[in-house]
């Protein structure tokens, strides 16, 4: 057997949330297999990331610090990873399921003819095999999945695993050279427009969502106010997005975002199966709806059957008092 690897996704000098979740999950897998955990740290000016990876529980770090890796372009990252995996043949490679992380998994698997299990929400080790539980058919069913190749590649759903915590561990990384020159990378990043400080839906620990029941664009005001007090992201059902009350960015569900916050507060959302597919893995679900028969109450842990335009301002006021 050989080590377990984890993709330490980093941006702006920090390991991002899915990267920390991946380290936590991979540490568990490595311990179960009785193997070392190796953090893969690629980027530009990433010495601090390597230090942080050790601190979060990696036993070793393979790092590459190169300008070509700055924007996480897959054409720079992919070939370097492929070469390293061929050389070391890790038992498993755990990757946080961000947009960039999924590209990494797809590229490596294609070049090395390996399988990938995507979007794991739970992991277990059975002998030498890493088995992942993952939603399929847009979250309507679950599957237990595994891959057969020499390196088992798994991507993780955002927020499905707790982030690794500081262990006080330290070490020195094995720094390697990049394998692709800038001149050989056709893709150039010519612009970037960041989202600013708004909480992204997939990263949010609390989501306050509105559906058809909010009645119009102005109906999202009390939703936003509650979200503001809680530091939450604002979600929406497809009905509200299709009606043009709120941009598509906010849509939760089968053709929107899939989210797993600690707390999901559904306001005026009936709970169609397409919506449920996007939020059913939330830890605690609260439904606020006038209609006590709405399907959302079958999924919810707590419910208030009342007018959301009375409940929401009261909730906002109550949290303001207590937080």
């Amino acid at each position: 057997m050989s080590a377990v690897w984890v993709w330490v996704e980093n941006r702006g000098g920090e390991i991002i949330a899915v990267g920390k979740e991946a380290i936590g999950a991979a540490r568990m897998v490595a311990d179960e297999l009785g193997e070392d955990l190796v953090g893969i740290v690629f980027g530009h000016n990433v010495a601090g990331i390597a230090t942080a990876a050790f601190d979060l529980g990696c036993d070793e770090v393979i790092g590459c610090d190169d300008e070509t890796l700055d924007k996480s372009r897959i054409e720079a990252v992919g070939p370097l990873l492929v070469a390293q995996i061929q050389e070391h043949e890790p038992a498993a490679f755990i990757i946080g399921g961000s947009t960039r992380g999924r590209d990494v998994a797809a590229w490596v698997a294609a070049d090395l003819d390996l399988g990938v299990v995507t979007d794991a929400v739970a992991l277990e080790v059975d002998g030498d095999v890493v088995k992942a539980t993952r939603p399929v058919y847009a979250g309507k069913l679950l599957a237990t999945a595994f891959t057969k190749g020499s390196t088992q590649i798994v991507t993780l759903r955002s927020r499905a695993f707790p982030q690794a915590e500081s262990t006080g561990n330290s070490g020195s990384a094995d720094w390697i050279d990049a394998v692709v020159d800038e001149d050989d990378i056709p893709t150039k990043v010519v612009g970037f427009e960041g989202k600013g400080n708004t909480v992204s839906l997939t990263d949010a620990s609390i989501i306050v969502s509105g559906g058809r029941g909010v009645g119009g664009p102005e109906g999202f005001e009390p939703v936003r106010e509650l979200a503001g007090v809680l530091g939450a992201a604002v979600g929406a059902s497809r009905a509200a997005v299709d009606a043009g009350w709120i941009p598509y960015d906010h849509q939760v569900g089968q053709t929107g975002k899939t989210v797993s916050p600690d707390l999901y507060i559904a306001n005026g959302i009936s709970g169609a199966i397409q919506h449920q597919a996007g939020m059913r893995t939330s830890k605690i679900i609260v439904a606020i709806n006038k209609d006590g028969e709405a399907p959302i109450f079958k999924l919810a842990h707590y419910g208030i059957v009342d007018d959301l335009f009375k409940v929401l301002p009261a909730l906002t006021a109550e949290f303001k008092k207590r937080l």
Partner: peptide, 19 residues
């Protein structure tokens, strides 16, 4: 290279909603 043949219905959530 990937096996996800073991597919099953999502277990019903334990307990029911507390109104």
């Amino acid at each position: 290279q990937a096996d996800w043949s073991h597919v099953y219905a999502i277990p019903a959530r334990e307990g029911s909603v507390e109104i």
